[in-house]
Every structure is written in C-alpha cells, then in structure tokens.
Amino acid sequence: MTGRLGFWLAHLFVLAYCGVLIGGFAVQFVTGDLPCPLCILQRMAMMLVAFGPLYIIVRTRRGDVRLADYAMGYGMSIVAAVVGAAIAVRQILLHIVPPDPGYGSPILGLHLYTWAFITFCVVLVFCGVSLIFARALVPRGVRFGWPSKVVCGLFLVIVAANLVVVFLQAGFHWFLPPDPDRYEIFHSLAFWDGGAISGGAAE
C-alpha cells in the first residue's frame, strides 16, 4: 500500500513541477513578461529537481525499485533544490531594497522568483520526509503504465518547449538583450520593421 503511495507521490512531484513550468509559460505568453537569465536558470533547476522522481518512476519498469535508487532519486532532487533556492535567493536579494518594485509582475502578491524559492523549500521538505520513510515508500508491486508514460512524455515535451522558446528569445546572439521584451530571433531574421539588432544583443 505505502509502496503504491510512494510511486504516485513521485508522479505528483513531476506533475507539480510540470504545472509550475507551464505556469511560467503562461506568464510569459499571456502577460508578455519575458524571463530574465536568472528566471531561466530557475526553470533549469526545476527540471534538474524533477529528474529525481522521474528516475524513480522509470525504475519501476524493471520491477520493484531498490532503496538505493529511491534514495538516489530524491538525493538528486535535494541537491538541485538547494542550487535552485540559491538562484532564487540571489534574485530576491537583487530586488529587496525599497522602493525597487521587483522584476516582472507579481502573481498572488509574490514575484515568480519568490514562488520559485517556495517551491524549492517544499521540495526539500518533501524529499526529507520521503527519505525518512524511504523503506515504507519505496515503490513495490506497481506497474509502469500509461499514466507514467504520460507524465514522462509531458515532462520531456516541456523541456523541449523551453529549449525552443529560449532559443527564440536569445537568437543567434552572444548576449541576451538588457530588457528581455522581444524574441531576438525574429528581429535578427528581420521578420518585422526595424530588424536591426539593438539593445546590446549583438557583439
């Protein structure tokens, strides 16, 4: 019973971060707030965090998951969450002095980098508790079925989508623009007026 719980909690973990990353896309495309380099780094850290439970899910293909694999998965998540939290704290501290309004629009009263920090803290607590009860929560008697395939596929699609979007944003330039408010690739290829490279994008 608890083995199944551990299995589905790993799914919930990956799905939760898929939701957060899709939310980041929603803010980017709906409100037009383009992510700054530190925001992109936080997205990367979230993906690294999600690799842990993803590894645990995929291990069920070979039958019961070993305790060592379970510990390795959540160990990876803990290390990545510490890195992600450090990046988020860096961005929080950059904008902490009043009257700095912060970077981007606040969502539910907090900026996205503050929310990112909260998610990394939640991950640390979740992984700690999961490792405390690791013997009980190691997936046993479960099958790698279609829900697992959907979760793995969705996660990979989100990583690929981020790859495409960040390429569109950075274009072929060495530098991202100082104010990321447009997709450099379209301007580089002169798809619309004023196709010249500006904003420090070229070198």
Binding site: P37, I40, M44, M47, L48, F51, L54, Y55, V58, R61, R62, C152, F155, L156, V159, A160, N162, L163, V166, F167, A170, H173, W174, F175, L176
Partner: peptide, 21 residues
C-alpha cells in the same frame, strides 16, 4: 549567455536518458 540554449539541450538529453531507462 548563449549557454542557456545549449543547457536546455543538455537537460533534454539528460531527461531522455532517464526516460529511456
């Protein structure tokens, strides 16, 4: 700066390696 695109490619490869078992 250009590493952002490359890094997502590295992450995609890592994710693919995990998913393929």
């Amino acid at each position: 700066e250009q590493m952002a695109t490359i890094l997502f490619a590295v992450l995609l490869v890592a994710g693919w390696l995990i998913v393929r078992g």
